[in-house]
């Protein structure tokens, strides 16, 4: 079983490619992190893998079956996309948000049945947030909101979870909490791919790391091999230092460039 992309090309408008021949695969039981500079195409890649966007060239296959051969609802029962920001215009409760994850199991005229409520309760319990069920989503803290969206992905029954910056906008304790939850989900058999902007997190938590730059993979493999100051400088155009603490914990931090011709990348948005 796997989710595999090969030779992906994608452009939102002609002549401005976002993905340029990108291949990667993801397996159940694995937590993989995807790194790359702003606007290098990380979110676009996630959306292609989730079947939300169709690549211009190349294929995404789930267990050897091209995604476009799957009906949208069948696809949604296997692949879940967890957005970075979810801004509901109305104050739905956390329960109602998670319940929406059951949509792929329901025909248009059907309303959630008993088995759907059971799945929602189970997802909330698994993440330990049953107590949030009746609070309005809009009143929750960033960390709690992230867990509610994860619960929705679990209620979706998806084997593969594609997460857009699950650690963004969280304080360090909540960042740690979310990473631990992701690891637990991988242990329970899910395949997870999460984007992040923290090389240190990518060094500490996942089984595998993909490093991306301008629509292509620069490197892929175990974190310790992929994330070196050299590859990171290649990706981000700034220097990095690898720091180690006496108990073996390592961190990667960006420092002012020491190379004579620093390659600067500035970008305001990531689509």
């Amino acid at each position: 079983m796997s989710l595999a992309a090969s030779g992906l090309h994608f452009a939102y408008s002609p002549g401005r490619p976002v993905l340029r021949g990108l291949s990667l695969d993801l397996h159940p039981g694995e937590l993989a992190y995807l790194l790359g500079p702003n606007a290098c195409g990380k979110t676009t890649l996630l959306l292609c893998l989730a079947g939300v966007l169709s690549p211009g060239q190349g294929t995404v296959e789930l267990d050897g079956l091209p995604l476009e051969k799957l009906a949208p609802r069948a696809r949604a029962r296997r692949l879940a996309y967890v957005p970075q920001l979810h801004e509901p215009p109305f104050a739905y409760t956390a329960w109602q948000v998670v319940l929406m994850g059951r949509a792929p199991f329901l025909a248009g005229w059907q309303r959630p049945r008993r088995e759907d409520t059971r799945a929602v309760r189970q997802a909330l319990d698994q993440l330990g947030i049953a107590g949030l069920a009746h609070r309005p989503y809009t009143s929750l803290s960033g960390g709690e909101q992230r867990l509610v969206l994860l619960a929705r992905a679990l209620a979706q029954g998806a084997k593969f979870l594609l997460l857009d910056e699950p650690d963004a906008h969280l304080d360090p304790a909540h960042q740690l909490g979310v990473q631990k939850t992701l690891r637990d989900l991988a242990k329970s058999g899910h395949g997870l791919l999460a984007t992040t902007h923290s090389p240190t997190h990518a060094l500490l938590y996942p089984n595998r790391v993909f490093l991306m730059g301008a629509g292509k993979l620069i490197a892929a493999g175990p974190p310790g091999e992929v994330l070196t100051p050299r590859t990171l400088e290649q990706a981000y155009g700034t220097s990095f230092r690898l720091l180690s603490s006496p108990d073996g914990i390592q961190a990667l931090v960006a420092v002012e460039s020491t190379s004579p011709h620093p390659r600067r990348r500035f970008s305001v948005s990531e689509s």
Binding site: A50, V52, A71, P72, A76, H86, A103, P104, G108
Partner: peptide
């Protein structure tokens, strides 16, 4: 179809990842 209208209040990529 009343429950279904909830899904339309989601951002397009989210709704689409839920099979809509």
């Amino acid at each position: 179809f009343r429950w279904r209208f909830n899904l339309l209040t989601l951002a397009d990529p989210e709704a689409s990842s839920l099979g809509l």
